[in-house]
Amino acid sequence: MEVELAVAVGGLYAAGIYLVMRRSIIKLIIGLSLLGHAANLLIFTMGGLVRGQPPVMHPWETRLVGGFADPIPEALILTAIVIGFGVQAFAIVLIKHTYQATGTEDLKDLQSSDLTS
């Protein structure tokens, strides 16, 4: 499955990058979300894939045994997901607000403060 997931990660990255490079700020948001998914899935795949062996001990065990999945990437991704959620929520509202304040979704119209005379 690693290869398939690698392709999926690549696809997600490609899609995300393609979307953030659009001129529409709304597509930017969708692209950023996709990039978030891509990064999480990337770490997950890198951590190694194990089926049906969550890193949770059974009540009769005092330590994890056998071919359990690596808990560290899972913890990292969990943190990353939550952080990503916070950041994206802000980004979504920012973009909505920008659209409302400026009346445009086109990045071409959003460069007035960044032009070299």
Partner: peptide, 28 residues
Amino acid sequence: VGYSVALVFLLFSAPDLAMTQFAIETLS
């Protein structure tokens, strides 16, 4: 996409991740 990612998490031994991803995706 988000739910599929959550499913991937679920299938490959990451129930906490899957739950969080489901919930977060819903909120998003």
